[in-house]
Amino acid sequence: MKKEVPLIITFISGFLLIVALFIPHEPFGSLQERFNDWYIIVSGFTLILGVDSLLLYHWRKIKTKDKDAPYSIILIITFITVLLWGIYSGVKHGNPFAPASTFLRYFYTYMFVPLQATMFALLAFFIASAAYRAFRARGLNATLLLVSAGLVMLGRVPKGEIVVPFFIAITLILIAIIFVLEAVARVSLYERLLYFALALISLIAIIPLSILLREYLPALADWIMNVPQLGAKRGLFIGIWLGAIAMAIRIILGIERTYLK
């Protein structure tokens, strides 16, 4: 019965919600509103469940004298302090976030906001470091990603079009050097000439490409965002939502039962 009852509830709820969407008349018409009300209430209780599992997890760490127990002690003390402070401000001002509340002024504005913002701001450093380490033109796909990322990054910021010729020049000179080195390493005269020609084309391309990108970089960045990016995104979205529909049907029909574990 431990499994059957939740499965029956899931089936009836899911089935009725689908019926309510297609038959907006009584007795199904008001079902959706009722389910939505219940959903809001249940969502509220999930917060309590979250708090309960968080505290229990850290309490166990303290009890078993885990090496990270000091952090758990700090978490529980902070939790209780913030809770009591919030309740006190709520009682005093009618709402813990009332403009005059010390909870809003001191805890939220001067502690919570800077801490959370700092955590997120650290991403700038990690992203720069990770991009430098991992973004290598290892193959065609990686190169395409790298070039389009660079164009969008510069095309979407002011004065990006002024900097781009500089990067284009460096990149094309490097490509030319690679072609020259390839040419030197070849034995066949035909291959040598071909690589020298490619090196020459790379060098000649610097000026027209720089002029073109200086003029059209923002438009090119917009095109990348609006056409290839959007096409890929749409494909992804369609795939994701088809998967979600399939999963919902599996859950309603009781084929997918992992949520019961």
Partner: peptide, 22 residues
């Protein structure tokens, strides 16, 4: 302006990393 500078820095770093790699 800060975003422009940081984007340029990141692209320059990527370019530098790729020069070394190749």
């Amino acid at each position: 302006t800060a975003q422009t500078v940081i984007h340029v820095i990141i692209i320059a770093l990527i370019l530098l990393g790729n020069i070394g790699y190749f």
